[in-house]
Computed example of a mutant assay.
Amino acid sequence: MQPHCTIDARRYRAVLFDLDGVITDTMRFHYEAFHKAFERLGLDVKSLDIYTHEGMPSMKLGRALVEEYGASVSDEELKKTVDEKRELYRQMAEGNIRAYPGVPETLAMLRENGVKLALVTGSNRRSVTKVVEEAGLTGMFDAIVTGEDTERGKPFPDPYLKGMDKLGADKAYSVVVENAPMGIKAAKAAGVDYVIAVTTTLPEQYFKDADDIMPSFADLGDCLAKRIEASSGG
């Protein structure tokens, strides 16, 4: 698959990124933690289950999984299982968090060009702070929205509306970068003008509603650099 790279990069003044699977290579830890924790409930959770629901707060994702598998699980038992998942994720990710190639350079380039940056994720603030710090990206984002900051998470528009509000950004001049269908739906529902999907966890067929598709963050970074240079007459 070739990157499409159709974005008019100079038009946009804000870029809002999902975290896991976009900025950091951490979705595999989330899947492995969900799989192991939910085995206790007798559920054999598949990677596709997690990747297609990614972006939802963990409790809501857990409830969706339970319902899809037709299991009967109380709220108390589900909370216990999700808490176990979070602890497993913490153990798996500890010391193993890495930003995707090209992330630091691309964020720096966008900031140098006056573009405001936000991180919009369904993860809790404690986890997000740890991931950003370990990935070496502290201070790179002008705003961070976590699963604790809105009543409704992705696929509802609230997280991206909150992110644009924090940035003081106009949706007509904003871009979202996502790797999950739930996130694409949230961005579109928020009226974001341009939505880019990166196929780090799911193939292109899952992103029919995206305006552009890239196979990796490195390809996205190269595209933005070329488009910004071209539009500035470089």
Rank of each mutant, 00 (worst) to 15 (best):
G95V: 14
I23C: 10
L161S: 05
A197S: 15
Y194W: 14
L119V: 07
K188V: 09
L41Y: 03
D142I: 07
G153A: 11
M214W: 12
L117K: 03
F34I: 05
A189M: 06
A180N: 10
D212R: 02
K171P: 10
S123G: 14
T52W: 01
E32K: 14
L119R: 04
T199C: 15
H4G: 08
G95C: 13
D170R: 12
M140G: 02
V45Q: 00
D83H: 05
V145Q: 10
A118V: 08
E67N: 14
G153M: 06
A190G: 06
M56T: 06
L48G: 00
L107K: 10
V198M: 08
L16A: 15
R111H: 08
T138N: 14
A108S: 15
K36S: 10
Y12R: 01
A9W: 06
T81Q: 06
E76G: 10
E67W: 05
F217V: 02
K208I: 13
V73A: 09
Y160Q: 12
L19D: 03
R63I: 01
T199G: 09
F29G: 05
V115E: 01
L110M: 14
I50G: 01
V192A: 02
N96M: 13
Q91M: 07
D83M: 01
S174G: 09
A189G: 09
A135S: 11
E105F: 15
A197E: 10
T106L: 13
G233C: 10
T129R: 13
Y100N: 02
T121K: 06
E67L: 12
D49S: 06
K116C: 05
R227P: 04
T201R: 06
